[in-house]
Computed example of a mutant assay.
Amino acid sequence: MKKTIITLCLILPALAGMAQNPLSFHAKAGIGTSYFHGKHSSSDTKIAYKAGIGAEYALNKTWVLQSALEFVSIGGKKDIEYLAKADMNELYLQIPLMIAARLNLGKDYHASLSVGPYVAVGVGGMTSGKIYDYASSSHDAGYRFKVGTFGSTIDGKMGNNRFDAGINIGLTLEYRRFIFGAEAQVGFIKVNEHLDQILGNDYGDYGTDERFLPKNFASFFTLGYRFW
């Protein structure tokens, strides 16, 4: 009997410690839209999506640190002088680092507002479109192309910068282990400077105040599940 009591005394604190573990893990996926932003560098929107796994560490009852490894598909559609509705797709591996304020709304409900930076590296994606032939009198003259988004223009790629970084903002509502959220991310890095060089040198007069230097913007509705 004494051994049983001692064993229980050792097990119960361990179980309580596990129940109060501030570290938790989750999986999350989402769909939304993305486009390019910047002065004289905006584009039309296109469908975007993301999926990943994340971790959360509770500093106290209110403040939480969040991070994740995410696969993100974003980009934009742009109609510029020598390209007819070029569709640029960018695939990234992305890591956000967020600080969140969490509010307990009831026994099974929580809401949180998070903000923080993210960094991303381009791992793939294709850009397709059409190059016009202005020497021809036909409106449909030209040819279509499809090239890799990332990589040197010397190698026949689109020349996009593989590195991206910016700020991420999120609002989530949790019901038990289910997570419903809305997120937006604003890129600070110029996606591509080669298009600007082509436009400025060969296709019209783009002054220094009208350079085409796009940056990423994306928003998502997400659904997730917390494992523990």
Score class of each variant (00 low, 15 high):
T127R: 06
T127C: 01
S128A: 12
D133I: 09
S112A: 11
S128Q: 08
A120D: 04
T127S: 06
K130S: 05
R102Y: 05
G106H: 14
A111P: 06
A135S: 12
A135Y: 10
V115Y: 00
L113F: 15
S136P: 09
N104Y: 08
S136E: 08
Y134P: 03
Y118I: 04
Y132W: 08
A135I: 09
V123E: 01
D133Y: 07
Y134G: 00
I131R: 13
K130P: 03
K107L: 10
D133P: 06
V123A: 02
G122L: 08
G125V: 00
S114N: 11
V119F: 05
R102M: 04
D133C: 01
D108W: 07
T127Y: 04
V121G: 02
V123D: 00
G125I: 01
A100C: 07
A120I: 02
I131M: 14
V119K: 00
L103C: 12
A120H: 07
V121S: 04
A111R: 02
L105Y: 04
G116V: 11
K130W: 15
S114P: 12
G125K: 09
G124E: 09
Y132P: 02
S128K: 13
D108G: 04
S112F: 06
A101F: 04
V121E: 02
A111S: 12
S128W: 10
S136V: 05
K130D: 01
R102L: 00
Y109G: 01
V115K: 01
I131L: 14
G124L: 12
S136R: 03
I131K: 07
H110D: 11
D108P: 02
K130F: 15
A111Q: 00
A120Y: 05
A135D: 11
D108R: 05
A101Y: 06
Y134F: 15
S114A: 15
G106Y: 15
